[in-house]
């Protein structure tokens, strides 16, 4: 992204705001069981916190915060978390994505479903964050001249 203005207020303001948006995104993912939220919304918020710095101070400087090398692998990790949550349920002798058979300590029934949903949401959050940042990075390739 080419920068029309070089204002320190914008750069420092976004730098100050970004960690708090990220924290709120994590809250939305992990508190999604009790309040409106979940993987999709939290992942979008995490992506927003990274895109804020990328837009305000240029893609080059934003590499220090989060390198674009890690975005696509992060999405792969998210998909794999979801996929293997289902696969472990098969290996434990059940149907695909049947969380009641996850081998997690001495919990059973609804308790295990609670944790299975949490794993799945974390996977979704990672994928959404990685893909949204990666799409932005790829769209502005070659336009960052500073």
């Amino acid at each position: 992204m080419t920068r029309p203005v070089d204002s320190p207020i914008v750069v420092y303001g976004s730098r100050l705001l970004s960690p708090y948006i990220m924290l709120f995104g994590l809250y939305v993912i992990f508190h999604g069981h009790y309040s409106p939220g979940g993987g999709f919304q939290g992942g979008t918020l995490l992506a927003a916190s990274l895109l804020l710095v990328r837009i305000s101070s240029g893609s080059k400087i934003a590499q220090i915060q989060f390198s674009d090398m890690f975005t696509a692998p992060m999405a792969v990790v998210g998909v794999l978390i979801y996929f293997f949550t289902g696969l472990i349920a098969i290996l434990a002798g059940g149907q695909y994505l049947n969380y009641e058979l996850l081998p997690l300590g001495d919990m059973h029934g609804a308790e295990l479903r609670y944790w299975g949903i949490l794993f799945v949401e974390v996977g979704i959050g990672l994928t959404v964050m990685g893909i949204l940042v990666s799409l932005y990075d790829n769209l502005v390739i070659g336009e960052d001249n500073d």
């Binding site: 979940g38 979008t44 949204l132 769209l139």
Partner: peptide, 12 residues
Amino acid sequence: LTAIVVGVATIG
């Protein structure tokens, strides 16, 4: 909820 995020990705 899913349609919104998928929509953003497809617009991308």
